[in-house]
Write a protein that binds this DNA or RNA. Sequence first.
DNA 1: CCCTTATAGTTTCACCTGTAACTACTTGCA
DNA 2: TGCAAGTAGTTACAGGTGAAACTATAAGGG
Lengths: 148, 148
Amino acid sequence: MPVATHADHAPLELERFIPYQLSIVSNTVSQTIADDYQARYDLSVTEWRVMAVLARFDGLSAREVAERTATDKVAVSRALSRLVAAGRVRRHMHENDKRRSVLGLTPAGWEIHDVVAPMARQRERDFLAQLSDEEQAWLGRILDKLMP
Amino acid sequence: MPVATHADHAPLELERFIPYQLSIVSNTVSQTIADDYQARYDLSVTEWRVMAVLARFDGLSAREVAERTATDKVAVSRALSRLVAAGRVRRHMHENDKRRSVLGLTPAGWEIHDVVAPMARQRERDFLAQLSDEEQAWLGRILDKLMP
DNA sequence: CCCTTATAGTTTCACCTGTAACTACTTGCA
DNA sequence: TGCAAGTAGTTACAGGTGAAACTATAAGGG
């Protein structure tokens, strides 16, 4: 059996360290959701997030998608390449600014969205069901406050 | 300006989707902490977590470290190779079971630990300072409940 | 005992990610 | 105008990461 070391060193108790707990909880729930669609649609987490914002905001540029998903623009560019190649996202150039792309879901993209979005919401409910109503309300407020 | 698409499709509101919020908040705080030690000590997040558990539990095997850090055993194996090579962790074989390693921090490992642990705790305090005392208490309880 | 099965740890492979460098286009000011 | 500076997006490179395969050792049942 492992033995706690001398108190002089004040070791970090990882399992009670909030940033560590957040990382474990976040990875667990995200992976659970991703398991629902990754194998079935060959869709990465980043790709799904891109599709989710395009479902809400049609016609965004790649940079705007990057902002709204809090994702690096390089990652968005790669996700878009795959999504366009798979026929899930349409991309054309802005008429007045030839640097910008104008993005949106294709019918095939919408089909996937309309299956995955309800699954994701259901997983969110399953996850929150571990908490009481009061705890759920506090968690919502706390996360809103902590979001950058 | 982007326009919200038709309600039939019920698009996900990413910025109010709890798993997404968790992932943003978690990545932000973990990266802030990592910035403190990564460049200074050439230490990855996984390596730091391995050191933190060895600070608390001397003599663990690699598998036990993997369990306690919720990290893949491959990632732990690689982190240990680097930590041993850097003289921060000592590793020898278990006398009765030659498959198992017996791990612990070296004096050099302790020196780093004793600098990084207080920094990490300070970052945790800074992070929590965004919340009221009541919110901090709820967050603590909620995370304990959600930890697998 | 021996042989099957299980476990600890490492290596390999394929992929994902972020940083930096690059191209193409636009803007603004001399 | 035309040239410097800024912006959108892609490409290249350099790690990091997980799944699967592999080696070595241990455990357990005939």
